[in-house]
Design a binder for these strands. Structure first.
Length: 587
DNA sequence: CCTGATGCGTC
DNA sequence: GTCGGAC
DNA sequence: GTCCGACGACGCATCAGG
């Protein structure tokens, strides 16, 4: 038996530092959990060291958390702007990091949602997951729940430690994600816990988003707002702010170039008083936005949120190879089509655009094509400030006719009306109306682009369940499950949920619903079918989810029908008919 | 191996 | 994708 | 007018659990 006591973790850490000590133990064959036990360090920190993070030194996370608190404490946007502006000017951290910590954007795809948070909080607080979830229902948000149930420790976390731990999550199995999160939460103070939860969910609930931050940054660094906006659409907000902090001249250097995706320009809903003649009207195709970048033989495709789809849609890459330009960026809609080239319902398209990998069987089942409607870069030249009327001829010279969105010029309301009616009768989603003198403003929603859609039929349906709201809607029933009747089977069949309910109406409905409760379940109250509502929608889809076999896409409440009883609501047969009449127009 | 829960991104 | 609501 | 928060449907990806 050896008389030499092996060195304790303390001694090792003093000799070589915490990180090295952990790695030493791992090297000599200790498992992660054994290192945790031996060192007394929190699990997340051991994992970080295991992943070769050298130092965790940086600003204390508690300082950031109290800044978050101050921000959420002030109500007016002006005040928030001022606080953010001062924070950014302070440069306590690199500017892009500060921006990221305010938008939580880097924490958007961690594979963490309410379920993971519930389990992590349960583990950290030793409450049961059921009780944690019950609190969530009451408060509508997990940050507050964390604040309520964590015991709170005073061990100082650093910003870097939290940042890196969260960024690590996607690479871990779910079980380990829960362990890392709960380790962070056990180490944190209660306020810190609240914001760790919110960061992990990618939503800080500070009452502002990118636009407010952008204005604050333009003030903090004294740069032109338009310039910053433009740079942000191309480089992302964090990078644009970093450039702004160096100097306005850096923003001027940011230019569109093929291969670098940018946020596409968006349209407002049509309003008659917003139309500026002459306009270009175009068919509105029911597909997904797609940016085609071409540079020499290389083609890159990006979605609206800048997700690259080049490998998933090889047909589109092939189409782009045929464009009559060496370099260009074309804005278009990708749609699903049948063998004859006729548009298919949106559902089909999802089977092609959602997968992350290309599979030939899928491609054979659902074909896709594109309908291009704009060009923003051509042979080395940005066309962002070139008016639409000049971009269109360039587009037409680059893109073969079959891949162009159908459109024409209108100079009077009558012509627009005629074009619209024709588009609807041909089964299209509606039309776009664009001012001919408009420039292309990346990332902005402007009134120079308008989308006009037809009013659809309405359906009278009965409310069979009401769901608890979350966040600001906690305590209300903010969404309603609807059903139609089948007179033959004498049964009700669900057709989906609807949620655009004003606070006023929610109050009134709550009183009625509370009289009709059949039973409560985990996410809402099941009701005696009595309250009738009239709803409208964009489209009826086949549904695997609802018992009717159909669901409403983009459903909207029109009004509550106090004059109708369950016996008088619409029937399943009518839903079937409406569905059939849709597909009939399309083919 | 299948199924359900969860998360994500499209509209 | 939509809507309601605050500012 | 602008911005934000709270919501709808779908299908795919991933993973835990039977």
């Amino acid at each position: 038996m050896s008389l030499v006591r092996p060195p304790s973790f303390r001694e090792l850490a003093e000799r070589m530092g915490e990180a090295e000590a952990v790695r030493y133990l791992l090297r000599i064959g200790y498992g992660t959990m054994k290192v945790v036990a031996e060192s007394g360090l929190p699990y997340h920190r051991v994992i970080l060291y295991r992943e070769r993070v050298k130092s965790l030194k940086s600003m204390e996370f508690s300082r950031l958390a109290s800044f978050y608190e101050r921000l959420s404490g002030v109500r007016s946007r002006k005040a928030k702007e001022a606080l953010i502006s001062r924070f950014l000017s302070s440069r306590v951290l690199p500017v892009d990091v500060m921006v990221n910590l305010l938008t939580a954007k880097p924490f958007k795809n961690l594979g963490v949602g309410p379920g993971t948070i519930r389990d992590s909080l349960a583990l950290a607080s030793r409450w049961s997951p059921e009780r944690v979830e019950a609190l969530y229902r009451e408060y509508g948000e997990y940050g507050e729940v964390a604040y309520l149930i964590l015991r709170g420790s005073s061990s100082p976390l650093t910003v870097k430690e939290v940042y890196l731990s969260l960024k690590l999550l996607p690479r871990l199995a779910r079980e380990d994600r829960v362990k890392v999160l709960s380790s962070l939460l056990s180490t944190a103070s209660r306020i810190e816990g609240k914001y760790i939860v919110r960061l992990a969910l990618g939503d800080l609930k500070l009452g502002f988003k990118e636009n407010t931050l952008l204005i604050a940054a333009s003030k903090a660094f004294n740069v032109d707002r338009q310039l910053l906006e433009n740079a942000s659409a191309i480089k992302g907000l964090a990078e644009a702010c970093r450039l702004a902090s160096i100097g306005e001249y850096m923003l001027r250097l940011v230019e569109l170039k093929p291969g670098v995706p940018f946020k596409p320009m968006l349209a407002h809903l049509y309003r008659e008083d917003k139309v500026k003649f002459p306009v270009r009207v175009e068919l509105k195709y029911d597909g997904s936005r797609l940016q085609i970048h071409k540079i020499g033989g290389k083609v890159k495709l990006y979605t609206r949120r800048l997700v690259e789809k080049s490998d998933v849609l090889p047909e589109v890459v092939e189409i782009a190879r045929g464009f009559n330009a060496d370099s260009c960026i074309v804005d278009c809609e990708v749609i699903a089509v049948d063998d004859k080239g006729n548009p298919l319902p949106f559902q089909y398209l999802l089977e092609r655009t959602l997968p992350r990998k290309y599979e030939s069987e899928r491609a054979e089942k659902v074909r896709v094509t594109v309908k291009a409607f704009d060009i923003v870069y051509h042979e080395g030249r940005s066309l962002l400030s070139t008016p639409l009327q000049e971009r269109i001829p360039i587009l037409m010279s680059v893109v073969p006719k079959e891949f162009l969105a159908e459109g024409e010029t209108c100079t009077t309301p009558g012509e627009v009306e005629k074009y619209f009616k024709d588009a609807v009768s041909r089964g299209y989603e509606g039309i776009m109306v664009k001012a001919l003198d408009s420039i292309y403003e990346p990332g902005r929603r402007t009134y120079t682009w308008l989308k006009l859609k037809p009013l659809r039929d309405t359906i009278d349906a009965v409310v069979v369940k009401a769901y608890y709201g979350t966040g600001l809607r906690a305590g209300y029933y903010s969404s309603l499950l609807l059903a139609v009747r089948d007179p033959k089977a004498r049964k009700l069949y669900t057709i989906g949920r609807v949620s655009n309910i004003s606070e006023d109406l929610m109050d009134r409905l709550k009183k009625r619903f509370d009289q009709l409760i059949v039973r409560r379940d985990r996410d809402g109250i099941v009701l005696k079918p009595e309250v009738v509502v009239e709803v409208t929608y964009m489209e009826i889809q086949r549904s695997p989810e609802y018992s009717s076999g159909y669901a409403l896409r983009v459903p909207k409440i029109v009004r509550v029908r106090n004059d109708k009883t369950v016996g008088e609501i619409d029937t399943l047969d009518k839903i079937r008919e409406l569905y059939m009449s849709q597909s009939a127009v399309k083919s």
